[in-house]
């Protein structure tokens, strides 16, 4: 079986609000699958439904061959879960936390000793073994949480924004660890709102308001983007923004250093000339060129361009 998770029309409502509004998922085994989405897009709710922590309002989920939440209890032995919020015990030491998790997963004495020694080495916890978890830094906590989530060698790891509040170097190390786990056959589903992390996933689902706005390999997503990207340089930014605001086709403007990046709908006729014409008054000397889309463009296109009226992005 090559699919770890399948979901069909998965939805969850809180009161009148649909946190997840009907999504389909197929997560392949032994890969890193990313959930990219802004806060409140339904990433955590989806992951919780996969764990069996929340009951779907509608739809079906199969995790490692077992339907959730009916057979979640079986799946839980093969699943590691890193919650969005640090959820180990702050008044226990690093070692005590690991020991407790081992015992709860029913490991024997010898296995406990061997696993803890291994995770301590692998995730660089040896120096802080006797330290209370509550006193750890963000990066240390995250390494401990990953160590704890992998003690029972789970087939599937669900990581909910694991790199939140973690410094860049720790994030890099963390992702190295993830690839090492995937190399040994673990399936990883990770939610994030960092573009660079999303780019490293094998596959990606961009979530927006409880729906999958785009899905695929990051490279393909950028190639198949449903928009054209125009970059503008050597201009007066304020004047350019004013001119572009009047162009109906412009869906998003973002400044990157000394350039402006403009998104227009797919199929816009001669976008470069359209932009140049719009800038003719204030910025006649502007350099305008069509460029390839980045994942960020995909994200913006997927989350903001879905057929609404032109609403230029004004954020810097």
């Amino acid at each position: 079986m090559s699919v770890a998770i399948t979901a069909r029309d998965l939805a969850r409502r809180f009161g009148a609000k649909w946190a997840v509004a009907g999504i389909d998922l197929d997560v392949p085994r032994a890969q890193i699958y990313g959930f990219l989405g802004p806060n409140g897009s339904g990433k955590s709710t989806t992951i919780r439904m996969l764990c069996g922590l929340l009951v779907p309002t509608r739809g079906t989920v199969t995790v490692l061959g077992h339907p959730a939440p009916k057979e979640s209890e079986v799946v839980r032995r093969k699943l590691g879960y890193m919650t969005q919020r640090f959820s180990l015990w702050e008044d226990l030491t690093v070692r005590e936390n690991l020991e407790f998790m081992c015992r709860v997963y029913g490991l024997g004495r010898a296995a406990i000793r061997e696993r803890i020694a291994d995770r301590m080495r692998r995730y660089d916890l040896e120096g802080i073994a006797a330290q209370r978890a509550g006193t750890l830094s963000g990066g240390q906590r995250q390494r401990l949480a990953l160590g704890a989530a992998t003690l029972h060698d789970p087939e599937l790891l669900l990581l909910d924004e694991p790199t939140n509040a973690v410094d860049p170097q720790s994030r890099r190390d963390f992702w190295e660890s993830l690839f090492e786990l995937v190399g040994r056959g673990t399936t990883i589903l990770v939610s994030t709102h960092y573009m660079d992390e999303a780019e490293r996933c094998h596959r990606l689902a961009i979530l927006d308001a409880g729906r999958v706005a785009a899905e695929g390999e990051p490279k393909d997503l950028a190639r198949d983007i449903d928009a054209v990207v125009v970059e503008i340089g050597e201009i007066d930014f304020a004047a350019a923004r004013r001119s572009l605001a009047g162009v109906g086709a412009v869906r998003s403007i973002a400044q990157l250093g000394n350039r402006l990046r403009v998104l227009l709908p797919h199929g816009t006729a001669e976008p470069a000339r359209l932009i140049r014409a719009a800038l003719a008054d204030g910025n006649p000397g502007a350099r305008v060129e069509l460029v390839g889309a980045s994942l960020e463009d995909v994200f913006v296109a997927a989350t903001r361009l879905r057929g609404e009226a032109a609403r230029p992005e004004r954020a810097a």
Binding site: C51, G52, E73, R77, S87, W89, Y105
Partner: peptide, 13 residues
């Protein structure tokens, strides 16, 4: 309250 339960109930306990 401290969020430990979310982790605890995803274990075989």
């Amino acid at each position: 309250e401290r969020g430990n339960l979310e982790l605890l109930i995803t274990t075989p306990v």
